[in-house]
């Protein structure tokens, strides 16, 4: 019967303690203690194989890229079919645009600004879905920047990106600087 962690060896040193010390040479106690020496010998094959496992490469790892690629394709397809917003109303009816494209325009705009990292971004539809949408954006900015200027530049850049890429009027663009990074 092998002693368990909960049942200390006759020398009172637990298996947990011994297991944790296996990566180091035996200490003074272990050099003297026959029980600990026997436990070390008993645990060594397991420790060695576990170490090999931990540091080795699994054959399945070659699949990782494919798995992630397939899932991301599905996710992108799903979100492209997401909420639609009215871009404009034509004689044939409303022309709608996916929220994915609008959020992508926000991300591209903010990513083009130096010293700023986008955190959250949200589209707020007009109450009757006919007026202009509003946007809410939160940022982290580099230390030493002026928060008011950063917010203003962010508004300008997003508005310009929307005008250039989407041609959609925007109501308000609320920008919150909620974190500072070095």
């Amino acid at each position: 019967m092998t002693p368990s962690t909960d049942a200390p060896h006759s020398c009172t040193r637990s298996e947990d303690e011994l297991w944790a010390s296996l990566g180091s040479p035996p200490d003074a106690h272990e050099l003297q203690c026959l029980t600990c020496q026997e436990q070390r010998r008993r645990l060594a094959p397991l420790a060695q194989a576990a170490q090999e496992w931990k540091t080795g490469t699994d054959p399945e790892e070659s699949l990782l890229e494919g798995i992630l690629g397939r899932v991301m394709h599905g996710i992108r397809t799903e979100i492209r079919r997401g909420t639609l917003f009215t871009l404009t109303v034509t004689p044939l009816g409303p022309l709608r645009i996916s929220s994915y494209l609008l959020l992508e325009a926000i991300r591209d705009a903010v990513d083009s600004i130096e010293h700023v990292e986008l955190r959250t971004h949200k589209i707020i539809p007009h109450a009757d879905d006919a007026g202009p949408i509003s946007l809410a954006v939160s940022l982290a900015m580099q230390a030493g920047q002026d928060g008011t200027e950063v917010a203003e530049e962010t508004r300008r850049t997003i508005a310009a990106r929307f005008a250039e890429r989407i041609g959609m009027p925007i109501g308000t663009i609320n920008v919150t600087v909620e974190d500072v990074f070095q």
């Binding site: 996710i75 979100i79 959020l103 955190r119 974190d179």
Partner: peptide, 20 residues
């Protein structure tokens, strides 16, 4: 931690690249 926080916030806002 800060970069991770930004990435998670972006992903939670619907950014698939941040999630990836």
């Amino acid at each position: 931690q800060q970069q991770l926080g930004n990435l998670v916030a972006r992903a939670q806002s619907g950014d698939p690249r941040a999630f990836e």
